[in-house]
């Protein structure tokens, strides 16, 4: 979660230094950095609580799924919904990478499903340990 924020700060700094303030504004990089940092903290917090609970517990699964859902929102925000549009002078550049973002969201969904599968897989041991 830290690396993307640092990456956004670096890109903002580089563009500002190279006279690309217009692109910083068009991409709303300062606001995006704030959003990515805030959502990243939510993901970290949910992942932290997930780690408190043992494998097989519903609480671990709930926090696991919730943390991956938050990670999905974080990813979608960081990727700006899969498309960007830059305008400069007479030129306009649009890039649509929605398919890439959807693939990554698929990976996040699999990670979410992992916590469900993990709960089902360890459920008997967890119930046995409680009794």
């Amino acid at each position: 979660m830290v690396v993307p924020v640092l990456l956004l700060l670096s890109v903002t700094s580089l563009l500002d230094g190279a006279g690309g303030e217009e692109f910083v504004s068009q991409l709303a990089l300062p606001e995006l950095t704030t959003m990515v940092a805030a959502l990243g903290m939510v993901v970290v917090a949910l992942s932290f609580f997930r780690g408190f609970y043992p494998q097989g517990s519903m609480s671990r699964m709930a926090f696991g799924v919730a943390s991956m859902a938050a990670a999905g929102v974080w990813l979608w925000t960081f990727a700006k919904g899969g498309s960007i549009l830059l305008e400069g002078g007479d030129m306009e550049l649009g890039i649509d990478y929605t398919a890439i973002v959807l693939l990554l969201l698929g990976a996040v969904a699999l990670r979410g499903a992992f916590y469900v599968a993990e709960m089902l897989s360890y459920r008997k041991e967890w119930l046995a340990a409680r009794s």
């Binding site: 890439i100 693939l103 990554l104 698929g106 990976a107 996040v108 699999l110 990670r111 499903a113 992992f114 599968a117 993990e118 089902l120 897989s121 360890y122």
Partner: peptide, 24 residues
């Protein structure tokens, strides 16, 4: 080995690696 969770985790990692490779 718990194959269900393992397969899901491997699947997620494979997709992430695929996207990383395509991007690079």
């Amino acid at each position: 080995m718990r194959w269900g969770p393992f397969a899901l985790r491997i699947g997620a990692v494979a997709m992430e690696l695929l996207v990383a490779a395509i991007l690079v």
